[in-house]
């Protein structure tokens, strides 16, 4: 199941997670996680809430002990000072100390690193330029997220952990966060981000690891995961009723939303020739491949079935 990423095989491996298991009070939260991190790669850990994404990050940050297995980052144990000096982390933080300004927060965190990023560059990347003198208590949710992002990057880390970075951000802020991530990647920073937004994983990552119930269920590039399902979607307008469409041999599923029918088929060509053969009138036709979201639902669905069996 382990597929090697296209661009990263030649790159340096900076972290290795081997057969990691973790249980809390007999509840298995992570089981047999194997994962490698490469230099300059964006790795998205994708999964529904409670899948174990944050637990996985916390093991890599050394905050959680392992029940089994091993993690090594830059050749050191997670949580040790040599590792901490090379990483930055954006965690899910509910609040920051109220009465410090953005500037004070950033400059303090910069002091923790030997070669921090230039202060103005941090402000620019995180989009905090106009509000550097505001107290953190006056920041909106999205601004707080940007400040946490700034704190994660201000030390010029080689490896950046972003736990649900775009939660609470509006679409503009999210887009600028994505640009910032692209830019850091271009500079050679490795980034591990968790998200439950498929679009985010799709847009940003070189590689996606899908986890569910503490296990890796798929691993690969966004395209590879999408291609694992061969279902196509056929969309059109038509005056016929849904029964005659369901009657078509190659159609797996049919649904109607407003004026449009949406068919799912494993062989779009055959479905189309059937439609034309039956002289069904159609207009405004589109055929699309599966979205990552569909892959995700399908894979999670399969998981549930195998679990039940």
């Amino acid at each position: 199941m382990s597929t090697h990423p296209r661009n990263t095989t030649s790159r340096q491996c900076i972290g290795k997670i081997t057969q990691v298991c973790k249980s809390f009070n007999d509840k298995q939260v992570l089981s047999n996680i194997d994962l490698a991190l490469y230099q300059g790669e964006v790795l998205a850990v994708l999964g529904p809430n409670g899948a174990g994404k944050t637990t996985l990050i916390n093991t890599m940050l050394g905050k959680i002990s392992l029940s089994k297995g091993e993690i090594s980052l830059f050749g050191h144990e997670p949580g040790s000072m040599p590792v901490k000096r090379q990483i930055g982390a954006m965690l899910q933080v509910a609040g920051l100390p109220d009465m410090s300004t953005i500037k004070e927060h950033i400059q303090l965190f910069q002091a923790y690193y030997a070669n921090p990023m230039d202060y103005n560059k941090v402000l620019e990347i995180a989009g905090l330029k106009e509000i550097e003198n505001q107290y953190s208590k006056n920041l909106s949710g999205g601004q707080k997220q940007r400040l946490l992002f700034a704190l994660a990057i201000c030390g010029n880390p080689k490896l950046l952990f972003l736990d649900e970075p775009s939660v609470g951000m509006d679409i503009t802020a999210r887009k600028s966060l994505w640009r910032a991530i692209e830019m850091l990647r271009a500079q050679g920073t490795s980034i591990l981000l968790t998200t439950h937004y498929l679009e985010e994983a799709d847009q940003l990552s070189d590689r996606i690891v899908m986890i569910n119930r503490g296990r890796i269920v798929r691993e690969g590039t966004s395209d590879e995961i999408k291609s694992q399902i061969n279902t196509k979607k056929i969309r059109f307008k038509s005056p016929v009723d849904i029964q005659s469409l369901l009657a078509l041999e190659s159609v797996d599923k049919a649904s109607k939303t407003s004026n449009y029918y949406e068919l799912e088929s494993k062989c779009a060509e055959k479905t189309l020739s059937e439609i034309i053969g039956k002289q069904i009138i159609i207009e405004d036709l589109t055929v699309t491949g599966a979205a990552l979201e569909d892959a995700f639902e399908l894979i999670n669905g399969q998981e549930k079935i195998t679990e039940a069996a």
Binding site: G75, R85, M99, E104, Q107, L108, Y112, Y113, Y135, K158
Partner: peptide, 29 residues
């Protein structure tokens, strides 16, 4: 690993800045 990783930040500077930030923060509270 390159030398950058082994560089250490200035400890005294961290102490001073941390104390200053913490004190000003509480004076404002």
């Amino acid at each position: 690993m390159n030398s950058q990783a082994l560089d250490k930040p200035n400890l005294l500077n961290i102490y001073l800045l941390e104390a200053k930030t913490e004190t000003t923060r509480l004076l404002r509270t």
